[in-house]
Write a protein that binds this DNA or RNA. Structure first.
Lengths: 193, 193
DNA sequence: ACCTGAACACCGTTCAAGT
DNA sequence: ACCTGAACACCGTTCAAGT
């Protein structure tokens, strides 16, 4: 009787929306990776049966496309808050970006999407375009720190690569120790010697 | 009693080899496209059961990798016969290449591999590298026909694109009429006006 | 060494019926 | 409009047993 109400859903007890399904997909990816995204698993998480899935989406391909589109939209969205960081001093700005990338919500998702991009060129294109935006901000931080263009470019590239490397090398959510290490690394990179 | 011997196999009545499976895969792709490549279909074609497949390959991914590698090896192989065409006059050389591309064995296979490349970046890399080899030969034909470098490049690109376009637009095996059309097209392209 | 035969698990898809 | 429940089809994988 009460069991049927056991929803992990965010919205009260109401019927599901497309974004509930998308959110469940991201959660699954973040927790168990891309290959965990199966209709059955989504249904279990949302407390509904497969029929419900097929009411909202035509098929699993349609759902995956919607997931990828939502990821890209999220990134465009956070572009604004990324730009808002510009008022911080460069070193703190970099730390803040790195912290976001390696946050427990992000890191697995980010890694999964990059893995997905290896198989799906349209996802790959979205990753590339998102990367470009972020790289520009990283480079800007180094320019603001007073480095000449060429030097800023080199350092930005290294930082960017390191960030991606961190999430690929991680096998569990980065902890406080990792965060300190990242911060130290950025400190070194941004130091004008 | 005799039914069990009904093999489409090339090798007498002997046990299967890896290349029998690869060949069956290409045949399936050529006839029905990439998505027809299923273990069951391969088994049906070779007159064996699934257990046999798993004796030769670890899993379906391993098989697909082997297929892609075999395709690339084939292309490297035919590089020699491509270079042998250099003794022909340019126009005939181009006609010969086009005929090969649109031959009934090739065209569906070629198209399927290009479709596959859209999903699998390692296949994509192999397609690109094979394309480079062929493009050089096409360009060489135009150089040999007496065009200056820039002009040869432009014409070669157009011919190459047209060839790829032909196999993508085709919905059945190109016939004699198509062949005449292709030849006429190449004639125009190679004409020094 | 190579293959059969049968079972299994997983998972996408459909659809009549419910509220 | 949204979902249940049950069935179905497809297909990859395993494995003990055969020759």
């Amino acid at each position: 009787m009460a069991a049927a109400r056991t929803r992990a859903s965010t919205r009260s007890g109401a019927r599901l929306t497309v974004s509930d399904w998308i959110e469940a997909g991201f959660a699954l990816i973040a927790e168990e990776g891309l290959r965990a995204v199966k209709i059955d698993r989504l249904c279990g998480r949302l407390g509904v049966t497969k029929g419900s899935f097929y009411w909202h989406f035509s098929d699993i391909q349609g759902y995956m496309d919607a997931l990828a589109a939502a990821w890209a939209a999220d990134h465009r969205q956070s572009r604004a808050s990324l730009e808002a960081l510009r008022e911080l001093p460069p070193a703190e700005r970099l730390t803040s970006m790195m912290r976001h990338l390696t946050s427990s919500r992000q890191w697995t998702l980010e890694r999964a999407v990059r893995e997905w991009a290896r198989r799906d060129p349209s996802v790959a294109a979205e990753v590339r375009s998102a990367d470009r935006v972020i790289f520009r901000e990283v480079r800007r931080a180094f320019l603001d720190a007073g480095f000449p263009a060429a030097e800023a470019r080199v350092r930005a590239r290294a930082c960017f690569a390191a960030g991606i490397g961190f999430i690929h090398l991680a096998d569990r959510a980065p902890g406080a120790a990792d965060a300190r290490e990242h911060q130290r690394f950025l400190q070194i990179m941004v130091a004008r010697q």
